[in-house]
Every structure is written in structure tokens, then in C-alpha cells.
Nucleic acid binder design. Sequence first.
DNA 1: CAAAAAGTTTAGTCTCGTCTAAGTTGGTTC
DNA 2: GAACCAACTTAGACGAGACTAAACTTTTTG
Lengths: 245, 245
Amino acid sequence: MTSRSQRPTTPSAPSISPTVFHEPLTRSVEDYLKAIYRLSGVGQPASTNEIADLLDLSAASVSGMVRRLSDQGLLAHAPYRGVELTPEGRRIALRMLRRHRLLEAYLVEFLGYSWDTVHDEAERLEHAVSDTLIERMAVALGNPRFDPHGDPIPDPDGAMAELVYTSLAEIPVGETAEIRRVDTSQAERLRFLGHSGLTPGTRVTVIERQPFRGPTKVRSGVAASEQVIGHELALQLLCVRIEAP
Amino acid sequence: MTSRSQRPTTPSAPSISPTVFHEPLTRSVEDYLKAIYRLSGVGQPASTNEIADLLDLSAASVSGMVRRLSDQGLLAHAPYRGVELTPEGRRIALRMLRRHRLLEAYLVEFLGYSWDTVHDEAERLEHAVSDTLIERMAVALGNPRFDPHGDPIPDPDGAMAELVYTSLAEIPVGETAEIRRVDTSQAERLRFLGHSGLTPGTRVTVIERQPFRGPTKVRSGVAASEQVIGHELALQLLCVRIEAP
DNA sequence: CAAAAAGTTTAGTCTCGTCTAAGTTGGTTC
DNA sequence: GAACCAACTTAGACGAGACTAAACTTTTTG
């Protein structure tokens, strides 16, 4: 009973080489870093309220955690101004993103998950899998670059293909585009899109669009079936234009 | 920000039908129940110190948790006398055991794990996987009844083949037996046994045994190689005797 | 069979991560 | 530019789950 594996109380002075020693991160910390990564993707720092909304926590809780994570050197906080990841924080966030997306790909490919049910499972597993397991899943999948929603999978160093797409809402009438990425994690939307055959890889031709953010009508696939897609949803279907159909 | 998904403070009066409402269990609780299941398998109740040793915690911590779990109706505690699982506690422990063993089987079968490295990974994942995922893994494996170590996998209702084996140390000289189960989770021992080809399914013939808990010499497999196995290890190799070789 | 040893529980403290309530700060409006 | 309002932070509390130290049972031993 002399030696027990309890976290040491040593406050771990800021290390020169931050990637060498890895304090075990809690689930919460990982979730905060992921959320902040997602929110500060646009350029601006993430605000306390945005983080609180995304994680379904009170703003006060977020303030508290932000202080702790700043002290740990995982993020930079300008009080009342927002919060940004440090390189170390970003490294961890990208690691979580890799895990999440590879898990989604694996569960869909090998365990019969559909793209609308896979998110929650991956959300829990991403905190529990080892690096070894993740890399083995990656190998089993053939090191994919994209997950089932078309989201890019960071490589182990954090590098990731950040492609620029055009939303279906912006594809002019008459043109053909290929859906490459679906930018929602809402199960109902994904299910609807799946049933409609509007998944990454599908080609659609815009045959009509109503003005004032109205719906877009497309013809898709070889079946030549027609679909009407509301503006909001069309914005989430990220495409590339195809030259000559 | 009005509704937040926080555990209600309601202390949840003891329910008539305990299997209907499932309070979310923490990792810790699941580990305690698993440990107590394992320790009280022999018949006697589990003692505080045994639990503390197994989980690498102080006895005082165990006392505290035991009180909380008794209050929740998951175990029966006679102070200073030990602790036993209630039916509900056992149900949960068996659920964890199913998860653990199916995970081990899956990781070995599909993700290149060896039987000596799989334990830790399963130990973390068993708390994170959903029932859905576990059942899909079971299907992918063909609903196996045993894990890679030969440990029986409880079915979803908690029923489990508890077979009686004879340890290799008790097989008389001259007789042949088939290894069915290896009763250790120490990686070094498993690695040694794996290298020696002494895995479940292997047949060995006892050709010599030294007295006073001395080593057992066996001839194994078609390769007709000879192995000497210390008494302690031989006790962990659980076998069934084979009639005529 | 009493005293010592071993095992267990209680008492009190700590950290993490959350909460609500009560201030602060900074931009917006008149 | 003062007042207001939304966003943010601080203060204080709490529950879970761990710890150490001290008290209390039970068992073992001389």
C-alpha cells in the first residue's frame, strides 16, 4: 500500500519541450480543446459563450476551465476578448479530430454503422482508444484522408487537407457538381440526405433555384431522380464543380 | 442556457424494478463492481483490503465507495465482514465482463492485437462502448463463447459457461490434455506462453514431473517439441484430459 | 485470555469540474 | 458621454472520488 498511482501534486513547471511529457488529459479537457479548435477555425478567437453553448455548460464553468487550461499552456486567453489554442493545444485538438474521424470511418466501414448514428459512438470512444489502436484502424481502412461525411482526417502530425468547396446553394443553375462534404452532425439531416442519396461522391445537376434563399432543385445520379433541397441544407452540402457533364 | 444536461440531485429512491431505470454509472463504479465480482467468485465475500489491492486504492477509499454502492443497492455490505454483489450489481459486473472479453476477442481477431497486449486496451474501451457496438462486434465474431485466453464470455443475459478444468499441474504423467484456458493477465507470462505455443486449443502430453511442486515436462503439438513448465505457471494452464491420444 | 497485530471504518481534506448568484467590463444607444 | 445591456469573470458551494490520520473491530498470538 506504499506506492499508489495517484496524480502527483507537483504543478509541473512550463516545459521547454511541451510535446515530451504528457500529463494525462481528462475527457473534459479534450472536449474543451476540440470545441475551441472548431470555433476558432474561422479566424476569430472563440468566445466564452460560444464554447458554453457548444458543450452545453454554463459560461461560468467555461471561464473556470479556460483559466486552468491557460495556466497549463494549452490556450491563450485575453480576458473579455476570447480564447485561442496554443500550438500544443492545437496539437491535442487535431489528435482528437483524427481519432474521431477515423473512428467514424472504421465504424461505418466494418461495424455496420450508418453515417447518421456514428457520431455519438465516436464521441465516447475518442477519449478511450490508444494511439496504437487508432493507427491500426487507420491501416485497416487504408489510411483514408476523409471520413464518411467528407471531413478531412488529420494525419498523425496534425497536417490535414483543408480544401475549399462551394456550397450547393452557390452552384449556378445548369451546372453540375460533385458533393464532397456534408457539414452537419445532426442525425435527422444526415438520415434525410442519406435516404435522398445526397452523400459525398454523388453528382448533382442544378436544374432550378428559387430566389431569396429559396430551395434548389437538382437532378442526381444515373437514376435521374429530382430533389428539392431547402436553402439551409443546400449550404451544408459542400461541392466542387464539374467541367463538362 | 435554461436547460442543461446535468445529473439531477434527486437521490432516486430504491426502485422496485431495478433493471428499468439506469443511472449512468461512472468508470469507477464499474471497476469496483468488476473487482468485487472477481473476488467473490470463490464463494466468500470480498474484503476491503482485497478490493483495495486489486484496484490499487487505499482501504479507506474502498470503504467509502462500498458505502455509496450499498446505498445504491448494488452491493450488500456487512461492516468488518466483507461485501457481496446484489443481483443488480452482479448483472452490471457481468455486463462489463462481456464487454471486456468481447473487446479482447475483437481486437485480436480484427485489429492485430496479441493476447498479451490486449488487456489494457479492452480495460479502457469497456467503459466507453455502447451496447450496440458490443453486439455488433459479437456478430462480427460469430457470437464467440470464449475470449482469446479461453475465458467464457457471458451472454447478454449474464449466463456464462462456467466449466471445470484441471490444471496442467494436476494432469498425471503419461496423460494427454488439451489446454482450454489460461488464467493470468500478466503480459510477460502470456507472451512466454504464446512463444511456447501453449495456447488454448493446444494438446500436450505430460512426460515427466518433478516432485514437491516441481516443474512439469510436456510434449506439445505435432512438432513434438518438449517444454518444461514451472509449477506456478502449470497451475494457470487449465486443461481437459483427452481419452486416447 | 489479554495484548498485539491486522483489518476496517470514520473523520477531515483535497482536486476536478460543475453549478448559481453576484459582480465587472465593454460596446450600444439615446 | 451617461446609461444600459450583453458578455464575461469571480465568489462560493457541491458531489464524486481520491487521500492520510486516527479510531475502532476482529483475529491472532504469547
